[in-house]
Amino acid sequence: MNLQEILYLIEYICWLLACIAVAYPLIYSIASLGTKKSHYPKARKQHRFAILFPAYKEDVVILSVIQSFLKQDYPKELYNIIVISDHMQDGTNESLSQLPITLLKVDYPNSSKAKALNFAMKQFDRNQFDIVVILDADNITEPNFLQEINNVFDSGVQAIQAHRTAKNRNTEIAVLDGLSEEVNNSIFRRGHVRLGVSSALIGSGMAFNYQWFYDNVKNLSTAGEDKELEILLLKQGIFIEYLDDVLVYDEKTQGEKGFYNQRRRWLATQFAQWKTVFRDLPHSILSGNVDYCDKLIQWMLPPRLILFGGIIVMGCIMQIVDWPLALKWWGLFFIMGITLCLAIPDRLVDDQFKKSINKLPLLFLMMVINLFRMKGMNKKFVRTEKNGTSTI
């Protein structure tokens, strides 16, 4: 086999791998179509909630968020808002202390959400609550949020991911960030649960059986605590439900720097899971743990923006080298485009979306650069700057 044949073989193998990476989101995008809602009966019992708000330097947003959450249409004596204040100003802590919440103060030299959650659990007893909810310091919920979560848990569900969605679209980056989250909701959450596969977690808007979380939170140690929680849940055979109509409004990244740092951490977290993939995948297949197998395969896939850009680059290269071979790459490009069209909610395809498209080449380059700057990022807490935007 000469050098040219070897290169053609490598190109074909790359195309086959790209086919798998394109087929996976396509299947779940198709499954996500329609407006099927989850129907849970009204709860027979009102459970006790622990609401955790890890807050690292969140002085701009935390007060308004907590004041908003206090308006829940749920008995006040049955939920305890717990703010874990890390490196926040004395004035902010003083204002928080005047509210009917539990304020915990920490001052870690190397802060992380995992450390904050562990610290909070150590302050309470194992049987003090029934359900724990984890929210980010910028998350806003509807007044019926706790009641909806309560209904689902009363039906026997042990782990929930609510529908996190953008509360701001004030910059082109924020528009694309919110769009990306909704695509993930379609593919990795709505599409999954409709095919009977566990939803992916996203870091906030999550709820768990309190005793389970109390026993397992000590296993969280990285900046990808949502991925660690997924591993723990799926290994134990606990299904993760997705509530498409229970919204959690989240402030999206507004600038290129914030997008770069955020994706850099996400990439590092994903690649850090590869050791777990290679270790656990064979056993999961043999044991028939479908949910965990799906999760491990999902972590092997390249990030969507890199996959999309990579297909374009390979198509252009083969167009020059041997144009008939480029046709199969352009076919993948077309299928990937259809997949994204299926996954993007119609309400987001507006003038703001059209204006933001010109940022995609820049974001692709930033993601490629991130591939070479991931060392140690899965151990660091990367805070996204907040402007207190509230465009709901």
Rank of each mutant, 00 (worst) to 15 (best):
N387P: 00
G310E: 04
L327Y: 06
L307R: 12
R48D: 01
R279S: 08
T276S: 07
I6W: 14
Y210M: 09
Q158H: 13
D90Y: 14
D107S: 13
F271P: 02
A159Q: 10
D59K: 02
I160W: 11
R383D: 05
V152R: 12
F259V: 00
V313W: 08
K218Y: 05
V133D: 07
L305K: 00
Q89L: 15
N2R: 10
L247A: 07
S199Q: 12
K76D: 04
W323G: 00
D107N: 14
K227R: 13
E172H: 08
Q273N: 10
A200K: 09
A159I: 05
F53T: 01
I285N: 01
Q319S: 15
S111F: 08
S198E: 01
L234K: 11
I285F: 03
F308K: 12
P54K: 09
N358H: 15
M318G: 00
Y74E: 08
I338R: 06
K275C: 02
M367D: 00
E182G: 09
K354H: 02
P75M: 13
L363E: 06
V368I: 15
I317Y: 03
E58N: 02
L233A: 02
I344S: 02
L234I: 07
S199C: 03
I62G: 00
N216T: 06
K71W: 08
Y292K: 10
W330C: 07
I231L: 10
P303G: 04
R304D: 03
L307E: 02
Y28T: 00
S38F: 03
F334D: 01
L229Y: 04
V132N: 09
I134F: 01
L220R: 01
I101Q: 14
A272R: 06
